[in-house]
């Protein structure tokens, strides 16, 4: 399937500017809408990053409080989600440093989170199909959890959160070439993990 890149339209730009103004005046209605809009993406990113659901939920809340406090720093020139994920990432790194415990940031995972991913939307699939989908999700989460955090993170940002390579580079404070090589290597590793897992 061929997809064609869409340039950022003026409309999007003015939307971002409007959002920046709302964040500056700490508009709680806008904040509520943002929390709802990004709930799955942000929690998914934090869960993948920390591999610990309670920590991810804690950071989820902290991220939004930080958005309220630092809302004035969002200038509206970039996509909001890139700014949001950068905040979430910084908080996650701080938490890892504070707790001084490894949650997979610097090393290969030995343990696999018992958390099972569950589909978000209400589904009407048949039980067998449901079971297979859950199995597939558990499988991919386990495979992701076994990747080093650096690879895990870029794969999630790229293919789940659909950030542009330049945006990922801004979020993780790494050169574009590093982002690309982590994605290639991450995909290969993920494929190996998935192929190697018992089906």
């Amino acid at each position: 399937m061929m997809t064609v890149a869409e340039p950022i339209t003026l409309n999007q730009e003015s939307e971002n500017q409007e959002l920046a103004r709302a964040l500056r005046r700490r508009d709680t209605e806008v904040l509520d809408r943002l929390i709802e809009r990004y709930q799955y993406r942000l929690l998914r990113y934090l869960t993948t990053l920390t591999r610990d659901r309670p920590t991810a939920e804690d950071l989820f809340q902290e991220t939004w409080i930080r958005v309220v406090e630092r809302g004035g720093q969002y200038n509206g020139r970039h996509r909001f989600e890139a700014w949001l994920f950068a905040i979430a990432r910084n908080l996650a790194i701080d938490r890892i440093r504070q707790q001084k415990v490894s949650i997979g940031w610097d090393e290969w995972a030995d343990e696999v989170s018992g958390e099972k991913s569950i589909p978000t939307a209400a589904r009407t699939a048949a039980p067998l199909e449901d079971f297979m989908q859950n199995e597939q999700r558990t499988h991919i989460q386990q495979a992701l959890n076994e990747l080093p955090a650096g690879y895990r993170e870029v794969l999630v940002l790229r293919f789940l959160e659909e950030l542009a390579l330049e945006e990922i580079s801004g979020v993780i404070h790494a050169p574009l070439s590093t982002v690309k090589s982590r994605i290639y290597r991450g995909l290969d590793l993920l494929r190996e993990k998935m192929e190697g897992a018992v089906l």
Partner: peptide
């Protein structure tokens, strides 16, 4: 297949988390 599996990866968000987050955000604001 890796990319397809990746894209199917979802998490469930509890309504309680959203409610408490909104409350915390309102209080801070």
């Amino acid at each position: 297949p890796v990319l397809q599996s990746l894209k199917a990866f979802q998490v469930q968000v509890s309504p309680e988390l959203i409610r408490s987050t909104k409350q915390a955000v309102h209080n801070r604001a």
